[in-house]
């Protein structure tokens, strides 16, 4: 089993107060970065799918992490390698040179070269929240796709995915190769099973710790660098950011004398009734 996990680094939401919009850009200087949480869940799922659930765990496949971004994003890849991924690929690009379609095109080239059984990724990144790269990628590759996966079970030559939908659970049976995007329920103890993992086995809840020996070995794992030209030649940006602005400051409230004044203000000032 070979799984490709695309990762995006995002500004740590805890540092949101540092974000300074200036015209068509967000000033990213001084920000702390972390892996997009949904991508972390995808990596955890990929590791679970390539293990046997025994102690000590046996690796049953290969997990390749890939990101598109500047040199600093290698820190993100190294921490994924420390968590257990086997090797990494970085496509060198400035953040400004990217949109969802460009990233999907770059990933398409890498998938065609690496031929993984599954592309496993977060349903969306928590910065832009566009929720489109997985879908565009599946379409370009003409692969079967399941989005918002809550559970994944490996089957012979494919996967069985459950998705939580309004009023119930939707089950999809996919043939490999396929694209699966994951939701946060995927890191629950009984959500992911490889063919070799006993169904009675319960994973630790959440995303695993990068173990110390693995952190120390991460530097020695392979990390290939490609250019955007290598993997997305001839692709133009189709989305252009025109303006960023901070949410409006909340104005102070007022005390109203009675219901009549409240209704009047809702109608004339707030214009909500």
């Amino acid at each position: 089993m070979k799984i490709l996990v695309p990762l995006k680094r995002v500004a740590d939401p805890d540092n949101a107060n540092k974000v300074k919009p200036t015209a068509d850009k967000v000033d990213t200087s001084g920000l702390e970065w972390k892996i997009n949480p949904f991508d972390e869940y995808a990596l955890e799922s990929a590791l679970r799918l390539t293990e046997d659930g025994k102690a000590p765990k046996k690796r049953l496949g290969e997990v390749i992490v890939v990101t598109v971004g500047p040199k600093e994003t290698e820190t993100t890849l190294r921490s994924a390698l420390a968590t257990g991924a086997d090797r990494a690929i970085r496509v060198d690009a400035e953040d400004d040179a990217l949109d969802g379609r460009m990233v999907a095109k770059a990933l398409q080239s890498i998938v065609e070269a690496e031929k993984p059984d599954i592309v496993l990724m977060g349903k969306q990144a928590v910065d832009g929240d566009t929720n489109q790269v997985g879908q565009i990628l599946a379409e370009r590759l003409d692969y079967p796709m399941a989005t918002f996966a809550a559970t994944i079970q490996e089957e012979d030559g494919g996967v069985l995915v459950s998705r939580e939908v309004d009023g119930g659970v939707c089950w999809l049976r996919l043939k490999n190769p396929c694209v699966v995007t994951v939701d946060l329920r995927i890191v629950a103890p009984e959500s992911v099973y490889s063919l070799k993992t006993d169904k009675s086995f319960k994973h630790n809840d959440g995303v695993r710790f990068a173990a110390l020996p693995a952190i120390m070995k991460a530097k020695k794992k392979p990390l290939d660098v490609k250019t955007l030209g290598d993997v997305a030649a001839g692709t133009e940006l189709t989305a252009k950011y025109s303006k960023f602005e901070p949410p409006p400051q909340r104005a102070a409230g007022v005390k109203v004398a009675d219901v009549a004044e409240l209704v009047q203000k809702l109608a004339t000032e707030a214009k909500v009734i």
Partner: peptide, 8 residues
């Protein structure tokens, strides 16, 4: 390595 250890 130091930063990863601190974070984990």
């Amino acid at each position: 390595e130091v930063n990863m250890v601190l974070d984990e």
